[in-house]
Design a protein around this nucleic acid. Sequence first.
DNA 1: TCACATTTGTACGTATGTATC
DNA 2: AGATACATACGTACAAATGTG
Lengths: 80, 80
Amino acid sequence: MIDREGPVPPYQQLAAVLRQRIVSGQIPPGRAIPSLVELEQEYGLARDTLRKAVAVLKDEGLVETVKGMGVYVRQPPAEG
Amino acid sequence: MIDREGPVPPYQQLAAVLRQRIVSGQIPPGRAIPSLVELEQEYGLARDTLRKAVAVLKDEGLVETVKGMGVYVRQPPAEG
DNA sequence: TCACATTTGTACGTATGTATC
DNA sequence: AGATACATACGTACAAATGTG
């Protein structure tokens, strides 16, 4: 699922996968994305890499983290 | 110089120190801040911590990194 | 209040890849 | 070819916040 040979860093690939899950509605607003432990098991990536992927989504405003709870999908901005 | 006991994370403390050096003119625009190796020796902090401190300054637009060169202080926005 | 599990945040150490000089 | 320097990645550990019982 993650191509370690290609030019795109794994953290960017994972960010893209999670972004797709969010914008497609697979993970709806208010719901949490898989925890770091679950992502670790699912993708076999290190914590540092997972954190970076989540940081990308936070920067984009797609998710927000709640310490002790999880990383939640935010409500999308109202459309036109 | 870095208080490991206090509530402020070391990377934020270091970011504050570097920010002060920059805005005070001690490290002028066009000049590079100390390298990760130098910061490591000076503050005894890990690479990840140093990277995070520098990332703060980058987010603030105070510095920009040039791969293979260093982290350079940017020209401040023209004043009023 | 306390103990416990879960989850994110922070921190340290190390290795490899890539770019510049 | 070598030195320097940032970017990325992996492994590990402890702290802090939250929820449950």
